[in-house]
Write a protein that binds this DNA or RNA. Structure first.
Lengths: 203, 203
DNA sequence: TGATATACGGAACATTGTTCCGTTTATCAA
DNA sequence: TTGATAAACGGAACAATGTTCCGTATATCA
């Protein structure tokens, strides 16, 4: 593998020339804007609104993300990455058990903002085919590290598969209704208590 | 409850006057057209296409179905009804075991055409809120009758709950891929064989 | 600092959703 | 059977959104 691995950015630049700085800035602004607009107006929000929120022209949006699904997928990856990155921060700044608990909460927040995407994910658009794998690739090692660390500290039991936990919480998070968020977080906490119940050393 | 129960048709007619015959005809034509277009172009197909397929103007479509979800829900109910009606026909024209087997196949066909609707059903549109209940209300007694009849004839065992079977097949039918249909039907057949395995009298 | 590749912006066009009203037609009473 | 009238029809017109295209602006590099 050569290290021509630039950010996978749609650009007119040929190998010789560097990608322009404003192009990078706008890519970032668009993703941030899309994230905000998707939450407030759904993934079917008008592209004009996203461009406006980002402070760029429509043409710029289309240059980077020719199809809506490109933008949706990019936002999804970006938020997965952000959630994973936070795990590392938490692990470095909190004791293992607390880091785990805090991250599970962070993960439920991630899931909550993805409800609007669920329908899109099942739409059959090939642009989304790779996302489930990406989801697992990124989250499984991430949670595995937190679990192993907490288990090593004797705070939780060690016999729960990371992916099982990811899925269980994912299922808990699909509940709907007024108090969905409270309900989900309560149930996740219950799960976490379950983890603690069988811990090796401390009660 | 008075017996003013006409078909729940949006109409300008006041109680005094009968609903016009062309209105009824067009309602039917629109539902039939929508069913066809939804299969070939998805539930987001342009309303113009549906009106054209039905041979009516756009205004007529909007008069009956002001929102797309109204049309989607009406088509859904209509197809549920058609599938249920076929159960009665099969029960009257085939021996119990064969009627059951044939209907289960018919049911998988119904499910297959509903994949495009799955996303819509989960969209949170209140127009769809009543559909799951309708689904169960109609299908559960329908399948219960077939099962009871077959069990009475000693062709299958009698300890399977109709709703469990409906759900199991529903889950089998969500599989995707090139051979999804074959796979689903194979698995449903396996289920059916399972029903036969514990039959009371005949082996 | 000038030349040039690159990217930007938004007008213009295309597609689809939705409303509105003049025209047509089914119904019903005479 | 026929005329009056309510009811429904059809599609033009308008609105909202998606998409393309190209003249203009600017970052990069020699």
């Amino acid at each position: 593998m050569q290290d021509d691995a630039k950010p996978d950015l749609t650009t007119d630049a040929r190998p010789g020339r560097a990608v322009r700085a404003d192009a990078l800035r706008n890519e970032d602004a668009l993703l941030e804007a899309a994230k905000i607009v998707f939450v407030s107006a759904g993934v079917d929000a008008p592209v004009r609104d996203i461009a406006a929120q980002a402070g760029v022209g429509i043409g710029t949006l289309y240059r980077r993300f020719p199809k809506r699904s490109d933008l949706v997928a990019a936002v999804f990856r970006r938020e997965v990455d952000a959630c994973v990155a936070e795990a590392e921060v938490l692990a470095a700044t909190h004791p293992p058990g607390e880091a785990l608990q805090r991250w599970l909460n962070r993960y439920t927040v991630f899931l909550a903002t993805k409800k609007g995407l669920a329908a899109a994910l099942f739409s059959g658009d090939p642009a989304f085919d790779a996302l489930p794998a990406y989801f697992r690739e990124r989250f499984e090692p991430c949670l595995a590290a937190l679990l192993q660390s907490a288990a090593g500290a004797g705070v939780i039991r060690a016999d729960v598969a990371p992916y099982d936990l990811l899925r269980a919480i994912g299922n808990l998070a699909v509940s709907t209704g007024d108090d969905a968020q409270r309900h989900t977080q309560d149930m996740v906490k219950l799960l976490f208590d379950g983890l603690r119940y069988g811990a090796v050393s401390k009660g």
